[in-house]
Design a protein around this nucleic acid. Sequence first.
DNA 1: CATAGAGTTTACGTAAAGGTCAAGTTTAAA
DNA 2: TTTAAACTTGACCTTTACGTAAACTCTATG
Lengths: 137, 137
Amino acid sequence: MKRAPADQFVQIGELAKKLGITTRTIRYYEEIGLMGPPERLGGGTRTYNREDILRLKFILKLKELGITLKEMQELAENFDVNQQAFGKITPKLLEILDAHIGKVDQKIANLASLRKEIVDYRGRIFDILQGKASEVS
Amino acid sequence: MKRAPADQFVQIGELAKKLGITTRTIRYYEEIGLMGPPERLGGGTRTYNREDILRLKFILKLKELGITLKEMQELAENFDVNQQAFGKITPKLLEILDAHIGKVDQKIANLASLRKEIVDYRGRIFDILQGKASEVS
DNA sequence: CATAGAGTTTACGTAAAGGTCAAGTTTAAA
DNA sequence: TTTAAACTTGACCTTTACGTAAACTCTATG
Protein backbone atom coordinates (compact mmCIF):
# COMPACT_ATOMS: atom_id res chain seq x y z
CA MET A 1 0.00 0.00 0.00
CA LYS A 2 1.10 3.43 -0.81
CA ARG A 3 0.96 6.42 1.44
CA ALA A 4 -1.35 9.29 0.72
CA PRO A 5 -0.45 10.89 -2.58
CA ALA A 6 2.30 13.43 -2.41
CA ASP A 7 0.20 16.16 -3.94
CA GLN A 8 -1.52 16.57 -0.63
CA PHE A 9 1.66 18.33 0.33
CA VAL A 10 2.31 21.82 -0.83
CA GLN A 11 5.50 23.80 -0.88
CA ILE A 12 5.79 27.24 0.57
CA GLY A 13 5.62 29.21 -2.67
CA GLU A 14 2.52 27.51 -3.89
CA LEU A 15 0.82 27.85 -0.53
CA ALA A 16 1.67 31.53 -0.36
CA LYS A 17 0.26 32.17 -3.80
CA LYS A 18 -2.86 30.20 -2.96
CA LEU A 19 -3.53 32.34 0.10
CA GLY A 20 -2.42 35.62 -1.36
CA ILE A 21 0.45 36.18 1.02
CA THR A 22 4.23 35.98 0.70
CA THR A 23 6.55 33.18 1.65
CA ARG A 24 8.18 35.54 4.08
CA THR A 25 4.91 35.81 5.95
CA ILE A 26 4.61 32.06 6.31
CA ARG A 27 8.17 31.71 7.51
CA TYR A 28 7.61 34.60 9.86
CA TYR A 29 4.60 32.92 11.44
CA GLU A 30 6.75 29.88 11.96
CA GLU A 31 9.52 32.06 13.35
CA ILE A 32 7.27 33.48 16.05
CA GLY A 33 5.71 30.14 16.82
CA LEU A 34 2.27 30.64 15.33
CA MET A 35 2.87 27.84 12.87
CA GLY A 36 4.60 24.74 14.12
CA PRO A 37 7.64 23.45 12.26
CA PRO A 38 6.40 21.83 9.08
CA GLU A 39 7.72 18.62 7.60
CA ARG A 40 10.60 18.93 5.23
CA LEU A 41 11.73 17.23 2.07
CA GLY A 42 15.17 15.68 2.00
CA GLY A 43 16.82 18.92 1.06
CA GLY A 44 15.07 20.97 3.73
CA THR A 45 12.20 22.30 1.66
CA ARG A 46 9.10 22.88 3.79
CA THR A 47 5.95 20.98 2.93
CA TYR A 48 2.52 21.73 4.27
CA ASN A 49 -0.32 19.27 4.71
CA ARG A 50 -4.02 19.95 4.99
CA GLU A 51 -3.91 20.57 8.73
CA ASP A 52 -1.11 23.06 8.33
CA ILE A 53 -3.09 24.86 5.69
CA LEU A 54 -6.20 24.99 7.85
CA ARG A 55 -4.20 26.43 10.66
CA LEU A 56 -2.66 29.06 8.46
CA LYS A 57 -6.07 30.02 7.11
CA PHE A 58 -7.31 30.27 10.65
CA ILE A 59 -4.50 32.63 11.54
CA LEU A 60 -5.25 34.78 8.53
CA LYS A 61 -8.92 34.85 9.45
CA LEU A 62 -8.19 36.05 12.96
CA LYS A 63 -5.81 38.61 11.58
CA GLU A 64 -8.51 39.81 9.24
CA LEU A 65 -10.68 40.30 12.29
CA GLY A 66 -8.06 42.53 13.81
CA ILE A 67 -6.53 40.10 16.27
CA THR A 68 -2.82 40.88 16.46
CA LEU A 69 -0.16 38.24 16.07
CA LYS A 70 0.82 38.87 19.64
CA GLU A 71 -2.69 38.11 20.83
CA MET A 72 -2.60 34.93 18.80
CA GLN A 73 0.66 33.99 20.46
CA GLU A 74 -1.10 34.04 23.76
CA LEU A 75 -3.52 31.54 22.31
CA ALA A 76 -0.78 29.59 20.65
CA GLU A 77 -0.41 27.02 23.39
CA ASN A 78 -4.02 25.97 23.08
CA PHE A 79 -3.73 26.59 19.43
CA ASP A 80 -3.12 23.07 18.26
CA VAL A 81 -5.93 22.54 15.86
CA ASN A 82 -3.98 19.48 14.83
CA GLN A 83 -4.43 17.91 18.21
CA GLN A 84 -8.21 17.96 18.17
CA ALA A 85 -7.94 20.40 21.04
CA PHE A 86 -10.52 22.55 19.40
CA GLY A 87 -12.83 22.11 22.34
CA LYS A 88 -10.17 23.64 24.53
CA ILE A 89 -9.23 26.47 22.28
CA THR A 90 -12.68 27.83 21.56
CA PRO A 91 -13.62 29.13 25.03
CA LYS A 92 -10.39 31.07 25.18
CA LEU A 93 -10.98 32.25 21.65
CA LEU A 94 -14.49 33.37 22.54
CA GLU A 95 -13.01 35.34 25.37
CA ILE A 96 -10.56 37.05 23.05
CA LEU A 97 -13.21 37.74 20.47
CA ASP A 98 -15.45 39.24 23.13
CA ALA A 99 -12.65 41.43 24.38
CA HIS A 100 -12.02 42.42 20.82
CA ILE A 101 -15.61 43.40 20.24
CA GLY A 102 -15.33 45.59 23.29
CA LYS A 103 -12.21 47.20 21.93
CA VAL A 104 -13.83 47.83 18.61
CA ASP A 105 -16.83 49.43 20.29
CA GLN A 106 -14.48 51.61 22.24
CA LYS A 107 -12.67 52.65 19.09
CA ILE A 108 -15.91 53.48 17.37
CA ALA A 109 -16.97 55.63 20.30
CA ASN A 110 -13.62 57.40 20.31
CA LEU A 111 -13.78 58.06 16.62
CA ALA A 112 -17.30 59.41 16.90
CA SER A 113 -16.28 61.88 19.55
CA LEU A 114 -13.15 62.71 17.62
CA ARG A 115 -15.29 63.43 14.60
CA LYS A 116 -17.39 65.83 16.58
CA GLU A 117 -14.32 67.59 17.86
CA ILE A 118 -12.89 67.97 14.39
CA VAL A 119 -16.12 69.35 13.08
CA ASP A 120 -16.27 71.84 15.92
CA TYR A 121 -12.72 72.89 15.36
CA ARG A 122 -13.37 73.15 11.66
CA GLY A 123 -16.25 75.44 12.46
CA ARG A 124 -14.05 77.74 14.49
CA ILE A 125 -11.43 77.90 11.78
CA PHE A 126 -14.13 78.64 9.27
CA ASP A 127 -15.42 81.49 11.41
CA ILE A 128 -11.97 82.99 11.44
CA LEU A 129 -11.91 82.99 7.68
CA GLN A 130 -15.19 84.87 7.77
CA GLY A 131 -13.78 87.34 10.22
CA LYS A 132 -16.35 86.42 12.81
CA ALA A 133 -13.72 85.63 15.37
CA SER A 134 -10.04 86.09 15.82
CA GLU A 135 -8.57 83.40 17.99
CA VAL A 136 -8.19 79.69 17.90
CA SER A 137 -7.91 77.68 21.06
CA MET B 1 13.34 101.49 27.24
CA LYS B 2 13.71 97.88 28.16
CA ARG B 3 12.77 94.93 26.06
CA ALA B 4 9.97 92.67 27.05
CA PRO B 5 10.69 91.02 30.36
CA ALA B 6 12.77 87.87 30.17
CA ASP B 7 10.13 85.81 31.89
CA GLN B 8 8.19 85.80 28.67
CA PHE B 9 10.79 83.28 27.59
CA VAL B 10 10.57 79.75 28.75
CA GLN B 11 13.13 77.00 28.63
CA ILE B 12 12.44 73.62 27.19
CA GLY B 13 11.94 71.73 30.44
CA GLU B 14 9.44 74.18 31.82
CA LEU B 15 7.54 74.30 28.56
CA ALA B 16 7.39 70.54 28.39
CA LYS B 17 6.05 70.29 31.90
CA LYS B 18 3.51 72.99 31.20
CA LEU B 19 2.16 71.11 28.20
CA GLY B 20 2.46 67.64 29.63
CA ILE B 21 4.96 66.37 27.10
CA THR B 22 8.66 65.58 27.26
CA THR B 23 11.57 67.69 26.14
CA ARG B 24 12.41 65.00 23.63
CA THR B 25 9.10 65.57 21.95
CA ILE B 26 9.74 69.28 21.58
CA ARG B 27 13.21 68.69 20.17
CA TYR B 28 11.77 66.05 17.89
CA TYR B 29 9.23 68.47 16.46
CA GLU B 30 12.06 70.86 15.81
CA GLU B 31 14.07 68.03 14.27
CA ILE B 32 11.38 67.26 11.72
CA GLY B 33 10.73 70.90 11.00
CA LEU B 34 7.37 71.33 12.70
CA MET B 35 8.82 73.86 15.08
CA GLY B 36 11.21 76.43 13.71
CA PRO B 37 14.58 76.87 15.38
CA PRO B 38 13.96 78.73 18.63
CA GLU B 39 16.15 81.45 20.00
CA ARG B 40 18.99 80.39 22.22
CA LEU B 41 20.69 81.74 25.28
CA GLY B 42 24.42 82.38 25.14
CA GLY B 43 25.23 78.80 26.00
CA GLY B 44 22.88 77.30 23.48
CA THR B 45 19.87 76.73 25.71
CA ARG B 46 16.63 76.96 23.75
CA THR B 47 14.11 79.61 24.78
CA TYR B 48 10.55 79.80 23.63
CA ASN B 49 8.43 82.93 23.33
CA ARG B 50 4.66 83.26 23.26
CA GLU B 51 4.40 82.64 19.51
CA ASP B 52 6.47 79.50 19.79
CA ILE B 53 4.24 78.27 22.56
CA LEU B 54 1.09 78.99 20.57
CA ARG B 55 2.50 77.10 17.67
CA LEU B 56 3.40 74.13 19.79
CA LYS B 57 -0.06 74.09 21.34
CA PHE B 58 -1.50 74.22 17.87
CA ILE B 59 0.54 71.20 16.83
CA LEU B 60 -0.60 69.30 19.89
CA LYS B 61 -4.19 70.23 19.17
CA LEU B 62 -3.99 68.92 15.63
CA LYS B 63 -2.31 65.80 16.86
CA GLU B 64 -5.11 65.32 19.34
CA LEU B 65 -7.49 65.47 16.41
CA GLY B 66 -5.64 62.64 14.77
CA ILE B 67 -3.64 64.60 12.23
CA THR B 68 -0.31 62.85 11.83
CA LEU B 69 2.99 64.68 12.10
CA LYS B 70 3.57 63.86 8.47
CA GLU B 71 0.35 65.57 7.47
CA MET B 72 1.37 68.56 9.50
CA GLN B 73 4.67 68.63 7.69
CA GLU B 74 2.80 69.11 4.45
CA LEU B 75 1.21 72.13 6.03
CA ALA B 76 4.45 73.25 7.55
CA GLU B 77 5.35 75.67 4.82
CA ASN B 78 2.16 77.62 5.30
CA PHE B 79 2.47 76.90 8.93
CA ASP B 80 4.05 80.13 10.04
CA VAL B 81 1.64 81.38 12.60
CA ASN B 82 4.39 83.81 13.48
CA GLN B 83 4.20 85.46 10.12
CA GLN B 84 0.57 86.46 10.38
CA ALA B 85 0.01 84.09 7.49
CA PHE B 86 -2.95 82.70 9.29
CA GLY B 87 -5.20 83.80 6.49
CA LYS B 88 -3.20 81.66 4.14
CA ILE B 89 -2.93 78.66 6.34
CA THR B 90 -6.57 78.27 7.24
CA PRO B 91 -7.97 77.32 3.83
CA LYS B 92 -5.40 74.60 3.48
CA LEU B 93 -6.10 73.55 7.03
CA LEU B 94 -9.82 73.41 6.35
CA GLU B 95 -9.06 71.18 3.42
CA ILE B 96 -7.03 68.85 5.58
CA LEU B 97 -9.62 68.82 8.32
CA ASP B 98 -12.32 68.00 5.78
CA ALA B 99 -10.26 65.18 4.37
CA HIS B 100 -9.71 64.01 7.89
CA ILE B 101 -13.39 63.98 8.68
CA GLY B 102 -13.84 61.81 5.63
CA LYS B 103 -11.14 59.45 6.81
CA VAL B 104 -12.69 59.21 10.23
CA ASP B 105 -16.08 58.42 8.71
CA GLN B 106 -14.43 55.74 6.65
CA LYS B 107 -12.75 54.27 9.70
CA ILE B 108 -15.99 54.24 11.60
CA ALA B 109 -17.70 52.43 8.75
CA ASN B 110 -14.88 49.89 8.56
CA LEU B 111 -14.98 49.25 12.26
CA ALA B 112 -18.72 48.83 12.19
CA SER B 113 -18.51 46.19 9.52
CA LEU B 114 -15.57 44.58 11.28
CA ARG B 115 -17.64 44.42 14.41
CA LYS B 116 -20.39 42.65 12.58
CA GLU B 117 -17.94 40.16 11.17
CA ILE B 118 -16.47 39.42 14.55
CA VAL B 119 -19.87 38.93 16.07
CA ASP B 120 -20.82 36.56 13.27
CA TYR B 121 -17.63 34.62 13.65
CA ARG B 122 -18.12 34.54 17.38
CA GLY B 123 -21.54 33.08 16.77
CA ARG B 124 -20.14 30.31 14.66
CA ILE B 125 -17.51 29.44 17.24
CA PHE B 126 -20.17 29.45 19.90
CA ASP B 127 -22.26 27.03 17.87
CA ILE B 128 -19.32 24.69 17.69
CA LEU B 129 -19.07 24.68 21.45
CA GLN B 130 -22.73 23.73 21.56
CA GLY B 131 -22.16 20.96 19.08
CA LYS B 132 -24.51 22.53 16.60
CA ALA B 133 -21.90 22.59 13.90
CA SER B 134 -18.51 21.17 13.30
CA GLU B 135 -16.52 23.39 10.99
CA VAL B 136 -15.18 26.87 11.00
CA SER B 137 -14.59 28.73 7.80
C1' DC C 1 23.90 17.01 -17.43
C1' DA C 2 22.93 21.70 -17.42
C1' DT C 3 20.40 25.18 -15.77
C1' DA C 4 16.44 27.97 -14.48
C1' DG C 5 13.57 28.66 -10.88
C1' DA C 6 12.41 27.70 -5.95
C1' DG C 7 13.83 27.06 -1.61
C1' DT C 8 17.09 27.86 2.53
C1' DT C 9 19.15 30.79 6.37
C1' DT C 10 20.95 35.10 8.16
C1' DA C 11 20.50 39.52 8.93
C1' DC C 12 19.59 44.23 8.18
C1' DG C 13 15.74 47.77 6.79
C1' DT C 14 11.13 50.14 7.35
C1' DA C 15 7.58 53.38 9.46
C1' DA C 16 5.93 56.54 13.69
C1' DA C 17 6.84 58.92 17.44
C1' DG C 18 9.41 59.46 20.39
C1' DG C 19 12.39 56.80 24.78
C1' DT C 20 16.69 56.30 26.75
C1' DC C 21 21.43 56.56 27.60
C1' DA C 22 26.00 59.03 27.60
C1' DA C 23 29.19 62.53 27.98
C1' DG C 24 29.79 67.01 28.22
C1' DT C 25 28.15 72.21 28.96
C1' DT C 26 25.13 75.89 31.15
C1' DT C 27 22.28 77.88 34.23
C1' DA C 28 20.39 78.94 38.59
C1' DA C 29 20.44 79.06 43.31
C1' DA C 30 22.84 79.05 47.67
C1' DT D 1 32.14 80.31 43.99
C1' DT D 2 30.43 75.96 44.05
C1' DT D 3 27.45 72.62 42.84
C1' DA D 4 23.06 70.48 41.67
C1' DA D 5 19.76 70.64 38.23
C1' DA D 6 18.83 71.46 33.64
C1' DC D 7 20.43 71.77 29.05
C1' DT D 8 23.13 70.23 24.84
C1' DT D 9 24.05 66.85 20.85
C1' DG D 10 24.48 62.25 19.11
C1' DA D 11 23.25 57.88 18.65
C1' DC D 12 21.08 53.71 19.49
C1' DC D 13 16.45 51.39 21.13
C1' DT D 14 11.39 50.32 20.88
C1' DT D 15 7.06 48.02 18.46
C1' DT D 16 4.63 45.40 14.46
C1' DA D 17 4.67 42.68 10.59
C1' DC D 18 6.90 41.71 7.45
C1' DG D 19 10.32 43.50 2.90
C1' DT D 20 14.56 42.77 0.84
C1' DA D 21 19.14 41.27 -0.25
C1' DA D 22 22.99 38.06 -0.09
C1' DA D 23 24.93 33.83 -0.71
C1' DC D 24 23.87 29.16 -1.21
C1' DT D 25 21.51 24.78 -2.08
C1' DC D 26 17.62 21.94 -4.22
C1' DT D 27 14.41 20.50 -7.44
C1' DA D 28 12.47 19.93 -11.77
C1' DT D 29 12.77 19.74 -16.60
C1' DG D 30 14.71 19.60 -21.36
